[in-house]
Nucleic acid binder design. Sequence first.
RNA 1: GCCGCCGUAGCUCAGUCUGGUAGAGCAGCGGGCUGUUAACCCGUUGGUCGGAGGUUCAAAUCCUCCCGGCGGCGCCA
Length: 431
Amino acid sequence: MLKTLYIRDAFKCGEDSEVELIGWVRSKRRHGKLVFLDLRDSTGIIQIAVKQGIADSETFMKALDVGLESAVKVRGKIKRDARAPGGVELHCNHIEVFGPSLDGFPIRKGVGLKFLLDNRHLHLRSPKVAMIMKIRANLMDIARRWLRENGFIEVNCPTFITAAVEGGATLFKLDYFGRTAYLTQSVQFYQEAAIYSLEKVYSLQPSFRAELSRTRRHLTEFWHLEVEMAYADLYDIMKVIEELVYAIVSNLSKESEVELKALDKVVKPEMAEPPYPRIKYAEALQILQSKNVNINWGDDFGADEERILSKEFEKPFFVTHYPKEAKAFYHMPDPNDPSVCLNTDLLAPGGYGEIVGGGQRIHDYNLLLERIRENGLNVEDYRWYIDLRKYGSVPHSGFGLGIERMLWWLLQLPHIRSACLFPRTPTRVYP
RNA sequence: GCCGCCGUAGCUCAGUCUGGUAGAGCAGCGGGCUGUUAACCCGUUGGUCGGAGGUUCAAAUCCUCCCGGCGGCGCCA
């Protein structure tokens, strides 16, 4: 192994320890016979002091000339010094530039948003981006762990599909050896098939939406955590959502403590401690109307409505029992009031809006056929999905959670694309 | 799809209202500096003003169309 010591560990080395570090030159400050380099790796940044007299003249010249973001190996002694960032620096006596920068590194102080996005492949090197990605990795790991510990089996579903979950308008169409296929926008239907074998399933994979959405909370490709559970009704699945979201928030606050602190973000278990407030659509409508919002029964809540509602709550909250016209055909109508369905959205407080959408599915064969026809959809397109209701159909519920939406809320990011390594939006599919 | 804003040097922007030979800071390059914190000081290179038409003696500037981007809405996770 070329590399033997990480920068984070170099800070723990004793005074005058002779160490070798490998990393990238993040910045350089020249003072005649003294040069400072900031050396970066995945674990941190350390200041390298190259002084003529301590370093030989060849090493000193290399330090003078090295380009930003060059990959270098440096050797020297660890020194405590109050003037160094973090109180520790390396007094360098040898440098090897084994991966030089062939040009001036384009990412500099003051560059604009468009430039950063156009150069995302280089922007990733910023410690801030790296910290968000570490938090993201923890979030996904925590979610998987919780689901596994609670008896859910991870399944992997196809990305190529032929029929839409939500309707055709938002699908990416592609050529599949002469046939028309689409990219999945949700694996829900496949998971509904899987519960007849595995009962409790989940998957974590990308979903695609061909929506020309120009907002800070939309991506065309996002990571979708979807869960489906046999024998669960609406209230059972709400409990799963609540506990899963709490597990994510409370564990993340501990397991990503270092990164959260460095980013100056506050994530605390109390932010998501169950139980979450539960209101029905009709009650939400009353709240809005009492605040003079012009909205009528049957209208879905827009961004403004979600923002106003979310100011009423300090924690995530459920909105349930939407009018069936506002929701997709597969939602189970409420037996007590068939004009609404047994669905739920989980909205984050503070204007961040919808994080989770889900509910109970129709398991009755004839009712499903009826709802498909009522929605003007072609029964043939949904043949296999309908087929599931012909053989031992059981009540079941599920939901989908947007990974980037969750990060967007928890880290209070200005835009959801900051939650992705290479975000995909309507205007951006490169790099 | 609808509404608004923007496009001038490698980057960040001024100049557009009120038409008259294209500017600054940073980066780069050359030089200086032994304690900086994405340092500082001196000098210096660098532009088909997003594209195409039009008006005018004259267009970065005024008009029309197109292209690209950003933000908001709708849609959703």
